[in-house]
């Protein structure tokens, strides 16, 4: 569905160095990225700010033309066939709405129907379906400017999917949303992916989105792909430590165990960092031998930690 081969994009940035003087510097926003996304995949696209995520998204959707390399989305070259491609993809920008500020949501969606030339009957069915899935009913007649951020995002998702595109590109769709709205959006995206088989590419800062939705993750850093593979292998590859949470029967001084570091003590509860190369079962056994234990839990490192570590090490991971 999406094929990207060795794309590059450089920008010239002018920075003020004095009151009138400016210096031109060249920034390589995307510096040789290649990947393929198969139909039906749900791919998370991660990276720190300014890593080149948005630039990639803009090249995939035809907003920007790549400096070099080739892009194929739904069989089309986005930069040359922008309008043809627009009919086959849905795009959601979390930070800005594609809806019309002063129109009621329903009118906005009607306009979109005309923009995409969706046939009236098909539109009615699709709108009914999306209204139900996203629970749009209560605010269909409300002008967009009066919607809460969560409602607006649901409206934007509906707008992006009204023409039933096989590919959905999402640029930070959960940014700024409250917990409930996030859950609604995630649940909806999951259904769209599994039930309709829509291919989804998701950029986000919220690693919860990734953990919940994506099996495959791509991480971009300094314009290059630092990782492309599944989530579990990423955890293993970065070799982040696991944490053992131990509840002792009574408060005690930090436990002593070779190779294990006690990170935190709170009453009877202690947090132990277990290096990846140690066998967790052996650690638990050794612990149970020497201390009275009430409860014990092993926590895999959160993806947040994995990614922070990846960025910090600046290293590339081969998976």
């Amino acid at each position: 569905m999406i094929e990207v081969t060795d794309i590059h994009k450089t920008f010239t940035v002018r920075t003020r160095t004095g009151r009138l003087r400016r210096r031109r510097t060249t920034v390589r926003a995307v510096d040789g990225i290649s990947f393929t996304v198969a139909p039906g995949e749900f791919v998370g696209y991660l990276g720190p700010n300014g890593a080149g995520k948005s630039t990639t998204i803009k090249m995939l959707t035809g907003i920007l033309s790549p400096g070099s390399g080739t892009v194929r989305v739904a069989g089309l070259d986005p930069s040359r066939r922008r309008t043809a491609l627009a009919r086959r993809i849905g795009v959601v920008f979390g930070q800005r709405t594609t809806l019309w500020w002063d129109l009621p949501l329903r009118d906005s969606l009607t306009l979109i129907r005309h923009l995409y030339r969706v046939e009236a009957g098909a539109h009615r069915r699709r709108l009914a379906e999306l209204t139900e899935l996203l629970d749009l009913g209560p605010f269909l007649s409300t002008p967009v400017r009066q919607l809460s951020l969560g409602q607006r995002m649901r409206g934007d998702l509906a707008a992006a999917l009204l023409h039933d595109p096989p590919i959905l590109v999402l640029d930070e769709p959960t940014i700024g949303l409250d917990v409930v709205s996030k859950a609604t959006v995630r649940g909806f995206l999951e259904r769209v992916n599994t039930e309709r088989g829509t291919t989804i590419l998701l950029t986000t800062h919220d690693l919860g989105d990734i953990e919940r939705l994506c099996r495959r993750v791509m991480i971009i850093d300094h314009g290059r792909l630092a990782y492309d593979g599944d989530l579990d292998r990423l955890r293993a590859a970065v070799a982040a430590d696991r944490v053992l949470v131990v509840d002792l029967e009574r408060p005690a001084p930090p436990v002593r165990l070779a190779g294990v570091v006690v990170e935190r003590v709170e009453g009877p509860r202690q947090w132990l960092r277990v290096p990846r190369e140690m066998n967790a079962a052996a650690v638990v056994a050794a612990l149970a031998d020497r201390y009275p234990i009430a409860d014990i839990a092993l926590r895999e490192p959160g993806i947040e930690e994995v990614v922070t570590r990846l960025y910090r090490d600046g290293g590339r991971v081969t998976a």
């Binding site: 803009k58 920008f93 002063d102």
Partner: peptide
Amino acid sequence: GTLDTMLVRPVSPLIQIATED
């Protein structure tokens, strides 16, 4: 950045901007 949202629609951005608001 709202021009970007117009560029992902299958209609000339000129028409979209002219009729916006």
